[in-house]
Design a protein around this nucleic acid. Structure first.
Lengths: 230, 230
DNA sequence: TTGTACGCGTTATCAC
DNA sequence: GTGATAACGCGTACAA
């Protein structure tokens, strides 16, 4: 691994703002704003002038300021347990794809499967004014769902995927149907002649794991097979 | 896959701001700000009162507003060609880890290895006021480095990793030492008795690929082996 | 069609 | 030790 060090960043020299453009054009800032956001009552002539000069001055809109004014950040937050393996990166890929198609950005962070860390990340995301948070609850999140409830009451969207907490009413969730998955798998084995089928259960406070076990048990029951000792 | 739809988000009801806390406490907003940001000239008594009430009101600081005021976003941008495979997610993992350790957030987006897309992402990141951008240039980025040069002249940090453009002076880069890697690999083969060694070259406008080829050629030369036809 | 004034939430500065 | 004021960059009623 080789590293090429860059020269010191040059003077910050504030980015050109909407007022800078306005000053050059001898018009008000609102006029520039209108010209740039299109579809307003504004003459074709000035709109063209403004756009041209703005481009010439290499004007880049400040979405942060605009967001503050509008009360929206066009940003989503995703909290992942980690980024190892293929699963979460794949999901993240999909999230980012859809988000950017709708003009949204995605803030990514990791919980390392620890509630404490997850809580800090949630707070940080809320502080960053994200409009929604997507999260598979961490494995250590038991009844500690206060930080998640706060997300809801802050008016911020909340969507669980992969894993959802047992009890948190009124939240959206995208999950694998592990109940039917397990049911069908076990049924398949039974039809194949198997009689002693084991199930390695996951943490029961996570709905996905619990459903999986229930599907397993239901299949045994429906085929009159005894439930073995754990 | 099963989807649980949530109830409609309740009334936005503006998040409690610093002025809300100030109003309740009958103090000025600046006092609240100082109490919360610590280490200022402020009495222990009021500091305690403020913190308590702020907590009771479930006050969450608005980092966007603070960033606007301070002129910093505490946010980094990462543009990845994609999120498939193991490499980029692993790198992203490391980036996010270090970033969050230093109080930074990470905005992730994909270029799909297309310059056009990469340009749009760069613009979006700049608009989001990120303080730095980490990026392996897309494979189709030839001499089109204007958008990258703009990042520099905007005063925004720019770090290449994995791949760097052939010519863009004054930028930082973290790369694999493919020159020596190839040199040593080829030397190893030669010492093992090999005489006809092929090299599948990558795109030559990407330094990593070019260096790899040069290392390969150097090894052949240093051992008096002829360079074969492609 | 365009300009003025204000507010979004926060913090730095200067008074008191 | 604390309060008032201004400013960050932008959008938008309202006035002209």
């Amino acid at each position: 691994m080789v590293e090429t060090k860059a020269e010191k960043a040059k003077a910050p020299s504030r980015r050109t703002s909407i007022t800078d453009v306005a000053r050059v054009l001898q018009v008000s800032a609102s006029t520039v704003s209108r010209a740039l956001s299109d579809q307003q009552d504004i003459s074709k002539a000035t709109k063209a002038r403004v756009r041209q000069v703005a481009h010439a001055m290499n004007y880049q809109p400040n979405l942060v300021a605009a967001g503050l004014r509008r009360g929206q950040s066009k940003t989503l937050g995703v909290i992942l347990p980690h980024l190892s393996g293929a699963f979460y990166p794949t999901v993240l890929h999909g999230i980012e794809k859809m988000a950017s198609q709708h003009g949204y950005q995605v803030l990514v962070c990791q919980s390392h499967d620890e509630v404490r860390c997850e809580q800090r990340r949630v707070a940080a995301l809320l502080a960053a004014q994200v409009e929604g948070i997507l999260i598979p609850v961490s494995a250590t999140t038991l009844a500690e769902v206060n930080h998640l409830a706060q997300v809801q009451q802050a008016g911020t969207g909340l969507v669980f995927f992969d894993r959802a907490p047992a009890d948190l009413p009124g939240s959206a969730a995208v999950l694998l149907d592990t109940y039917n998955g397990a049911y069908e798998a076990v049924t398949h084995l039974i039809k194949g002649g198997s009689r002693r089928i084991a199930h390695f259960a996951g943490p029961q406070q996570v709905s996905t794991s619990r459903n999986c076990q229930e599907g397993y048990l239901a299949a045994l029951r429906d085929h009159q097979l005894p439930r073995g000792k754990n």
